[in-house]
Design a protein around this nucleic acid. Structure first.
Length: 259
DNA sequence: ATGGCTATATGTTATAGA
């Protein structure tokens, strides 16, 4: 089973590029971020006619996450627990049952710039809530895949120009430490396991010819619980998507699992 | 990057992204 994460930067703007990638890559499950759409406006037909079940957690203009799945989506949950006053749509969960049952978490972690400041504080607080949810999920001792746009450059080798990101919310020590507190609960960075060489990027800025210069960063991750890591067969990045027509600034990252 | 591009809203420009 192929599970992918893809920050599409607006479902309306990606109404052609996203189906084209689905038809070519044929993922079984896709966790989407930045749909930038309310649930009612999400073009479900585009995906249902391709055999996907669809669950969305959207909001107007910004953020928004969704799950596409060839298998039925069970026990769908929307929103990250821990702050009832947080109305930003950045977290969705569902269970799919293949050879094994897998709990899927799709996430759009806050950007956090400018840092320091209230947006960075929100990012760190959100990550602490995510850590608590991740710990709860681990206690279940079942396969869990937490995938999405983490807005975290884990290490210097995950950026073409790490020095340019030193003060940025994506690379500041406090943000990376918060990421490690989640990872060190016992999760596996699937892409790093399968492709340990530096220079594996998932985002290239629209500006300043970043794509042409390969000035990228790796910020889209799939984290696997131990029970999910046991089922990992392969992982990769569909880099070519960035060079297609009207692309998102992110590309899909995927895992192949024995599920 | 002192932000050069892209997307969204009901806009004639602002806000957010990373």
């Amino acid at each position: 089973m192929k599970i992918a994460t893809f920050n599409i930067n607006g479902i309306k703007a990606r109404a052609e590029a996203l189906p084209a990638w689905l038809d070519e890559a044929a993922p079984d499950i896709v966790l989407l971020q930045e749909i930038k759409s309310v649930d009612e406006a999400f073009p479900r037909d585009l995906f249902e006619e391709r055999g996907y079940n669809v669950a969305t957690h959207g909001q107007k203009s910004f953020n928004g996450v969704a799950i596409l799945s060839k298998l039925p989506l069970e026990d769908v949950a929307r929103g990250l627990p821990g702050d009832g006053g947080d109305d930003q749509a950045r977290w969705i969960e569902a269970t799919v049952v293949g050879k094994a049952a897998v709990r899927l978490c799709g996430l759009y972690l806050p950007n956090g710039n400018p840092a320091p400041g209230p947006k960075f504080d929100y990012k760190l607080a959100w990550m602490e809530r995510m850590r608590a949810r991740a710990a709860d999920l681990l206690a279940g001792e079942v396969p869990v895949v937490m995938a999405g746009d983490y807005n975290i450059i884990p290490q210097a080798e995950d950026a073409a120009r790490p020095e340019a990101w030193r003060e940025d919310a994506l690379f500041r020590p406090e943000a990376r430490a918060a990421y490690r507190r989640i990872l060190n609960l016992g999760f596996t960075d699937a892409l790093r396991t399968r492709e340990p060489r530096p220079g594996q990027y998932s985002f290239w800025d629209y500006q300043a010819g970043a794509w042409q210069k390969n000035n990228g960063i790796r910020i889209d991750h799939l984290l696997l619980s131990p029970q999910a890591a046991d089922l990992l067969r392969d992982a990769g990045i569909d880099k070519a998507v960035r060079g297609g027509d009207k692309p998102s600034d992110h590309v899909p990252v995927w895992v192949e699992m024995d599920i």
